[in-house]
Simulated assay, not measured.
Amino acid sequence: MTRTSLPLCIACAQIAPRVGEVDYNRQLCNAAIAHAAQQGAELVVLPELAQSGYAFHDLDEALESAEGLYDQTVMGWFELARQHDIIVVGGLCERLSAVEVANSVVLVDPRGWLTCYRKAHLWDREKLIFTPGDQPPPIVHTAKGRIGLVICYDLELPEWVRLAALGGAQLLCAPVNWPDLGRPEGERPAEIVRVQAGAAVNRMFIAACDRHGHERGIDWVGGSTIVDADGFPLAGASSLPEAQLLVTDIDLAEADDKWISDHNHVHQDRRPELYGGVCGTSTQSAHPPWAHCSRTGYSPPPHHRQ
């Protein structure tokens, strides 16, 4: 059977926003969008909190940089999207009220549509500043294909990535700010490995756009990466703490084929009736499996003791 091709040229723009310098960041983002369009990109992903910078001291400082969804930054992205016929995915510090902000990502469609997702899983001190989102990853039906949205630490919750895949996402776009926490010599960043795993187990493209630069004592991985539906990197996938624009062509139709052998389908092989514990409702019996072994003198390892 002939499969319909859904080609898409995508880009990740790894830039270095400055915390609290919204005007500077706005110009930086706009230049990156235009540059991506000049390179033929039909969709560009910017980093997490690209509009504001990341390392706020406190909520009050975040409120000073926050903008609404129809303020200058996002409206500028709309104008560039229309001008260049490009989809823009970018992170911003969103003002929810006079006393609340969200770590948000917007997808701006050149046809005039705006989709917003608010980060549900907050990392470290983000919990002291941002109000977490309470909605699942949105799946946006664009003219180019079905695009899902998450932010940074969301990628490390496999249930959340799976949710986007089950919702029909062909491409998952993830603005990220990955702090460089160190790793064993010769190892690639674990954040990239997790992106590859999420793509492979769901047969879904993932584009994660990191940042670079030094911000209030934080260095960044600079690990922007675009991964195919088999989990293999198409661009990036290494630590490069400097400005870069990753551009690659993908065929979104590949993400609609979930078969990995003649008899295995990555979603149909799931057995959700056995997974209640993943959602906080245990499916275990009163006697765990190792209880049967204890009758023959077996003692379970310490982490199994109850």
Rank of each mutant, 00 (worst) to 15 (best):
S5Q: 13
S5N: 12
L6I: 06
Q14D: 03
I15W: 07
R18A: 08
R18K: 15
V19D: 04
E21F: 08
Y24A: 05
Q27R: 13
Q27L: 08
L28T: 10
I33M: 10
A34R: 10
Q38I: 00
G40D: 09
L43Q: 01
V44H: 10
G53W: 11
Y54T: 10
Y54H: 14
A55T: 08
D58Y: 02
L59V: 05
E61Q: 15
E61K: 01
S65T: 13
L69P: 11
L80S: 09
Q83M: 07
V89K: 09
R95L: 02
L96W: 02
S104E: 13
V105I: 04
L107I: 12
V108F: 04
V108Y: 11
D109S: 12
L114D: 04
L114V: 12
K119T: 03
W123T: 03
L128D: 15
L128C: 06
I129V: 13
I129S: 07
F130Y: 15
F130M: 04
T131P: 00
P132W: 01
P132M: 00
G133F: 02
G133Q: 07
P136G: 05
K144H: 14
G145V: 05
I147A: 06
G148R: 11
L149H: 10
C152W: 04
E156M: 11
E159P: 02
L163G: 11
L163D: 15
A164Q: 08
L166W: 03
Q170E: 15
C173E: 00
W178M: 07
P179A: 08
P179W: 07
E185P: 00
E185K: 08
G186M: 06
E187T: 07
V193L: 08
G198L: 03
R203G: 03
M204P: 09
I206E: 09
C209Y: 00
D210I: 05
R211Y: 11
R211M: 03
G213P: 04
I218G: 01
D219T: 13
V221F: 01
G223F: 05
S224V: 09
D228K: 05
A229P: 01
A229I: 02
D230G: 07
D230V: 00
G231I: 06
L234N: 03
G236C: 08
G236E: 09
L246I: 11
D249K: 13
A253N: 04
A253T: 05
W259C: 08
I260H: 10
S261G: 14
N264S: 15
H265T: 10
V266S: 14
H267M: 14
R271M: 14
G276L: 08
G277D: 15
C279T: 13
W290M: 03
A291F: 08
C293W: 12
P301A: 05
P302H: 05
P302D: 14
H303L: 05
R305C: 09
